[in-house]
Amino acid sequence: MLKTVLRAALSTTFVTLAAAITLAAPAASAATPAQLLNTYAAEAARQTPGFQPSAQRGAELYARRFTASEKMPACATCHTDSPLQAGRHAVTGKAIKPLAPRAEPARFTDPAKVEKWFRRNCSEVTGRECSAAEKADFIRFMTEGS
């Protein structure tokens, strides 16, 4: 009897602990790539009714060579031809983990980080910020098309 009670008490403790850890582990801003994609797609649909994200357009954006930056003409310059591969920063030489969540699960899970790098890298490569539609296409390519 005592054993059963103890076991029950222990398991309750573990469940509570596990729940606490589960609740504490993800940062407040954690998201899935699908959630991020939906947010950008919804924003794009408000601007262009009927918008549907396209992995094909995302792939084209990823590979396209722009003229804004000599050292970084395309996403692929640093991230290689495939976002499943590790890349290298064209200026500093620093190793870059793969961009596709399939190869690097932490990718596209932190909305603030994703926004920061879209803002910075779109400005660097294309010479302007990317639209919500482009971001949605890009994430669709990262998650489905690559």
């Binding site: 290298r88 920063h89 064209a90 200026v91 500093t92 030489g93 620093k94």
Partner: peptide, 11 residues
């Protein structure tokens, strides 16, 4: 090509 920049210490 493995170094690229002098600031790339880990290379």
């Amino acid at each position: 090509t493995r170094v690229v920049s002098a600031s790339n210490c880990p290379a």
